[in-house]
C-alpha cells in the first residue's frame, strides 16, 4: 500500500493546480472589507469646499475610484464609469492618485468627468491608507461608510452587474 502514496500525493497536487489555474495569484484581497472606510482629509479639485473627509461619504452608497491620468487601465474603464454616472446608477468619488493637475485637466476635458467630486492624493498617502497598489482600484461603500467590495483593475459591466449590484441591493 505504501507504494501508492506517491500517486496519492500527485493526485492532491493536480487537484490543487486545477483550482490554482482558475485563480489570479496577483490579486491581494483587501483587509478593509467589512470595515469602516479609512480616515482621510484631502483637497478637492474645484469642489464647493476646499477639502473633504471620510465623514462626508456617509448617507448613501458611493464608489471610491482611485485613478490617474497616466494609468492605462483607467482609460479602459472610463467610458463605463461615465455610463454609470450618467444613468444615475452610482455616485462616484474620484481620488486622483499621484497625478499632476496639469495632466489631469486635459484628460478629463477629453473624456468627460464621471465623478461627483475629485480629491487629489498627490503623495499617494491616502492610497497607502486604502491599501491601493495599482490604479485603477474601486471601493464600494455602503450608506454607513463601510467598505463592502473592492475591485482591483478596471471596472467592467460584468463585475458591476454580477458582484456589486447585488451587494448594494442587500446592503440597503
Amino acid at each position: 500500500m505504501r507504494f501508492a502514496i506517491p500517486l496519492v500525493v500527485l493526485a492532491l497536487l493536480v487537484g490543487l493546480f486545477m483550482i490554482g489555474l482558475r485563480r489570479d495569484p496577483h490579486l491581494v484581497p483587501s483587509p478593509l472589507i467589512g470595515k469602516a472606510a479609512p480616515a482621510f482629509d484631502l483637497p478637492t479639485l474645484d469642489g464647493k469646499r476646499p477639502r473633504m473627509t471620510d465623514a462626508d461619504l456617509r448617507g448613501a452608497p458611493v464608489l471610491v475610484n482611485f485613478f490617474a491620468s497616466w494609468c492605462a487601465g483607467c482609460q479602459e474603464e472610463h467610458a463605463y464609469l461615465m455610463q454609470l454616472a450618467q444613468n444615475g446608477q452610482a455616485r462616484l468619488l474620484g481620488i486622483d492618485y499621484k497625478d499632476a493637475e496639469s495632466d489631469l485637466r486635459p484628460w478629463l476635458t477629453r473624456r468627460g468627468n464621471p465623478y461627483g467630486v475629485i480629491l487629489t492624493d498627490l503623495e499617494g498617502k491616502a492610497g497607502i491608507d486604502w491599501g491601493v497598489y495599482g490604479v485603477p482600484e474601486t471601493f464600494v461603500l455602503d450608506a454607513k461608510g463601510t467598505v463592502i467590495y473592492k475591485q482591483i483593475g478596471p471596472m467592467t459591466p460584468e463585475i458591476w452587474q454580477h458582484d456589486i449590484q447585488p451587494l448594494l441591493r442587500s446592503a440597503t
Binding site: A68, S69, W70, C71, A72, K98, D103, E123
Partner: peptide, 9 residues
Amino acid sequence: AGARAEVQT
C-alpha cells in the same frame, strides 16, 4: 512609456 508619468514628490 505612457504620455505622462506618475508624479513622484
